[in-house]
Amino acid sequence: MYTIVVGVDTDVERARTQAEAIVNLPGGEEISAILVHVFDSEDGDVESVDAVVEARAILEAAGIEVTTEGIGGDTGMAILDTAARRDADCLCVAGRKRSPTGKALFGSVTQDVIMGAERPTLVCSTEE
């Protein structure tokens, strides 16, 4: 089984793009996905996040085994920690177009994950 940790934020379109990219990977029937949503605090119901619900529906319709985790804390570190804890084979994050100034001022979860990952990382974008 090939395990992918998928960092899902609240954007439904980005979650749909991530799920469709995973569905289109070769060997889909041998993939399991862990959908991770990071909350501002320890409290939160991951199953009530629309983007998680959308990604789960797409993945399960394709026969991919799906589990979910809702975690509190720093988003990038939480995704990386989940991947290490679950011994994931790959990470999947969704990028979005930001200016260099925006990245410098606000940071980028995608960039944090890419720079901190010790395993392959699939970056999906909804940009044309």
Rank of each mutant, 00 (worst) to 15 (best):
R86V: 02
A78N: 06
I64F: 05
A83D: 08
I71T: 12
S108M: 07
G70S: 05
V66R: 08
A57K: 09
V66L: 04
G70R: 07
D43F: 06
V93M: 07
V109F: 14
R96L: 13
T110M: 01
V66E: 01
A83N: 08
E47P: 01
G70L: 09
D74Y: 08
S108H: 07
A94G: 15
I58A: 01
K103T: 13
D43G: 00
E69L: 15
A88F: 13
I79Q: 02
G102C: 02
K97D: 11
A104N: 04
V53M: 10
I64T: 08
I58N: 01
E54F: 02
E47I: 05
L59E: 03
M77Y: 05
R96Q: 14
K103C: 01
D87G: 01
A84W: 05
A83V: 12
V49L: 08
G107F: 13
A94V: 06
K103W: 00
E65C: 03
G73Q: 15
G72W: 09
G72A: 14
R85I: 15
S48H: 08
D87R: 11
G70V: 09
L105Y: 09
V93E: 02
R56Y: 00
S99W: 14
T67E: 15
V66I: 09
G72C: 13
V49D: 06
A51Q: 03
R85C: 10
A55I: 06
T101L: 11
G107L: 09
L91S: 03
G72L: 13
A94S: 14
G73T: 09
S108P: 10
A57T: 11
A104C: 00
C92F: 11
A62C: 12
S48M: 10
T101N: 01
A104I: 10
G107V: 09
A84S: 11
E42F: 11
D81S: 12
R96D: 10
E60L: 07
P100Q: 04
D45Q: 04
E54G: 02
I64G: 00
G44V: 05
G70Y: 08
T101M: 15
